[in-house]
Amino acid sequence: MALHFKFAAIAATAALMGTSALAQGFPDRQITMIVPFAAGGPTDTVGRLIAEKMSADLGQQIIVENVGGAGGTLGAGQVAEAEADGYTILLHHIGMATSATLYRNLAYKPLDAFEYVGLVTEVPMTLVARQDFEPTDMAGLLTYLKDNAETTTMANAGIGSASHLCGMLFMQAVEAPIVTVPYKGTGPAMTELLGGQIDLMCDQTTNTAEQIKGGTIKAYATTAPARLDIFPDLQTVAEAGLPTMEVGIWHGLYAPKGTPAEATDRLSASLQKALADPDIAAKFGELGTQPVAADQGTPAALKAKLEGEITRWQPIIETAGVYAD
């Protein structure tokens, strides 16, 4: 017990001495990484992998806290209000950019509430269909949709989910009124796709890769800019003539606004070191993704990405007319 009180006293003194003193020894205690999604999900996995590597470099444990709910806005909101001392950080994905439009009364402004640490990874998506769905390839699908869009169904894992975002892009790219069927999460949506209850889905390759390999579903295209290492025969959407459908579920690391630059720089350096680690590359590879290039693991790169993506998604979401608030 005495130890804890001493601990609080040190923290109090550090607060008194101001930011430079704090940052010199940063980090001198455990860091909390908030993942705004449930434990065990793809984002949580990315968070835990990166936290483990960064802990080793920082010499302090980064513990992952899952604050799920409301499409990641609850966890993000919590970090926005957390103490800006570098000991609370946030791992969020593309939802940071889309929530700016999807949620019309968000308690924080995604662009103003955070300091940036760096980009982590960009998970490509794949457009998949039930095994016995008629079209055999992407060209066939596009022809099929010309006449059958209204009887074709497309699953997504709920509003604001990766599969919903990709579905919106797909429907706007092909200009076809496909019937959207929301599910509560990827699991149920994938089950119904496997069971042939529904025709199409576009989801993160993390979720689809094993099913495609197992032949339980078939893939039409990837939304990545280049073909995927694991599926070299799979077309990209650009090759299929739908360049606007290019999308990846990118993940970034943030800290609350006002976090001293010493802290974010230290975190960013550590992140870049982790991204260059071959072990991380291997683990990410199993998820169907790869770490971003080291020069992307920087505050500037993440800031640029977030600003660009907010601008990109605003008209797409507004056209679809779906809001999550």
């Binding site: 804890h4 009180f5 601990f7 609080a8 923290a11 109090a12 607060a15 909390t32 103490e83």
Partner: peptide, 9 residues
């Protein structure tokens, strides 16, 4: 967090 920010204030 065992001891929160209110206490350090």
């Amino acid at each position: 967090r065992r001891f929160g920010p209110w206490l350090s204030v």
